[in-house]
Write a protein that binds this DNA or RNA. Structure first.
Lengths: 113, 113
DNA sequence: CTCAATCTGTTCACTGAGTGAACAGACTCT
DNA sequence: AGAGTCTGTTCACTCAGTGAACAGATTGAG
């Protein structure tokens, strides 16, 4: 449920904007509020993130999220891991596309017969 | 639930082997027997596939599935549609990979500071 | 100050896709 | 005949995901 994809994206978004709300996070991640809340708690549970409720300049009553040292480490390694994952997907997709193209060519040939 | 992906794959597998069983189909599609049964029925419902229980040479008591004329038409058009879909995915993935690479470079730079 | 409005995080009943064990029927072989 | 094996079909169950509803905090206008 808390995949590398969301680890990566959440750590990145929070580093860029520590005062982001869970609703805004959900919107940018294109997932529900409930899932966002779950992932966030999981990251805090793992010690990658901390939430402080220090009063922010202009915000209402929200948390300030920030990456722990462990969080920075994880962000670096999850980036690499996620990149490798995406590259494998890329290669698979490339092969799949080639195969569909091949099938389409064979379809055309059998049309001629 | 019956996505273009399974339309395409099922029509292709059945054209290649009309005496394939639902369990074998499920195995090759890497989905459950229940979902395979559902998709198959949906394709029959739409008139793309027909199931005849003519006695097959060496099989036990299975159906013979075959594509209707409409099924052949659909197979041709779904191939193209599916290919385009995969190509869009491919481009998205390419952009995503580039962005992760960019982030990794920025991470390294901020490490030096 | 007061109270309504608006933000926040949290919860949890609900949904729906997907699963696979279990079943009934048809066939084969001894 | 009967045991074994294949078939398609069903359906109770699971579980990730959803988002309306809630409680608490802050703000701002009257």
């Amino acid at each position: 449920m808390l995949t590398d994809e969301y680890r990566y994206k959440i750590l990145k978004l929070i580093e860029a904007n520590p005062s982001i709300s869970q609703r805004e996070l959900a919107s940018q991640l294109d997932i529900s509020l409930g899932k966002t809340n779950f992932c966030l708690k999981a990251l805090i549970e793992k010690g990658l993130l901390k939430a402080s409720n220090f009063k922010n300049s202009k915000k209402k009553s929200a948390y300030l999220y920030f990456l722990t040292p462990k969080g920075f480490e994880e962000k670096a390694s999850v980036s690499v891991r996620f990149l490798k994952h995406k590259m494998r997907e890329y290669e698979k997709l490339e092969a799949e596309i080639a195969q569909i193209r091949n099938d389409l060519n064979q379809q055309k040939e059998s049309d001629i017969e």
